[in-house]
């Protein structure tokens, strides 16, 4: 029964959508059939794969960079009062600066280049990762670190066996919200200053008012992100938390 509820919900929505599209009968509200045929058209021309892979590459590149930099800053801020004091005003600043402003400035100062696009996305995401990891670092168990110290663990052993497992839930949380935020920002970056990628295609079809194609690209990308969640994030999380007793 547990699996049936989401299924009911999705099937119900598609039905509603079909009926609404049929009643309104306007190209600005295409039905599921039109959207599927748009997806098919874009797949068979090869355009969808091309743009999808370029966007995915940008998402992964900026995701990895933002996570590594954000984890580093968060760890340092959680560990040292001095570093926290030095970085904190800038963290607040970058948390509150509008994404669009960062994108504009990166393109103005860096030109309409791939590097400027990636940097803009990374700058938007790093503060969120840093804040989450700072909290994680502050909640580290001091007793386990003492245990490592008394048994003369190397710095790497301490990091790998004592610190990283405790930060893992914070890294997963930052990664989850990071992935969904990053792909949205990547689309904006592509929309404004790139000549390929899903964001660029959305821009093109927006000018043509082709709603079916806009939905086609959005659904294709959401499907890819869902696959990443199901095939990579969830199995990794299950593996990393296997030591925890099953929640009641």
């Amino acid at each position: 029964m547990r699996f049936l509820y989401p299924l009911f919900s999705i099937v119900g929505f598609i039905l509603l959508w079909t009926i609404a599209a049929f009643l309104i009968a306007d190209p600005l509200l295409p039905g599921p059939v039109e959207v599927c045929s748009a997806i098919y058209r874009e797949i068979s021309s090869g355009a969808l794969w091309h743009h999808l892979f370029i966007t995915l590459w940008r998402v992964l590149a900026s995701f990895i960079m933002a996570m590594v930099i954000g984890i580093g800053i968060g760890l340092a801020m959680g560990r040292s009062h001095m570093i926290n004091g030095l970085f904190d005003p800038w963290l607040v600043f970058f948390l509150n600066i509008p994404a669009l402003v960062v994108i504009f400035l990166c393109y103005i100062w860096g030109g309409l280049t791939e590097a400027a696009a990636i940097i803009a996305v990374v700058i938007n995401k790093v503060p969120n990762v840093a804040v989450t990891l700072r909290e994680g670092t502050r909640s580290l168990n001091y007793e386990l670190e003492e245990m490592g110290q008394s048994f003369r663990y190397t710095q790497w052993q301490k990091f790998q066996h004592i610190i990283l497992p405790q930060l893992q839930p914070f890294i997963v949380a930052a990664g989850r919200s990071g992935l969904s935020l990053i792909w949205k920002i990547v689309l904006v970056v592509e929309f404004i200053g790139r000549s390929d990628g899903v964001g660029f295609q959305l821009h093109t079809y927006f000018q043509l008012f082709d709603v079916a194609a806009i939905l086609a690209y959005s659904l294709a990308f959401i499907a890819v992100m869902l696959l990443i969640e199901i095939l990579i994030v969830q199995p990794w999380e299950r593996y990393a938390t296997r030591w925890r007793a099953e929640p009641a």
């Binding site: 007793e143 003492e146 245990m147 497992p165 990393a240 030591w243 925890r244």
Partner: peptide, 8 residues
């Protein structure tokens, strides 16, 4: 306290 690593 035993201070074992719960994840190992």
């Amino acid at each position: 306290e035993p201070r074992l690593l719960p994840w190992r």
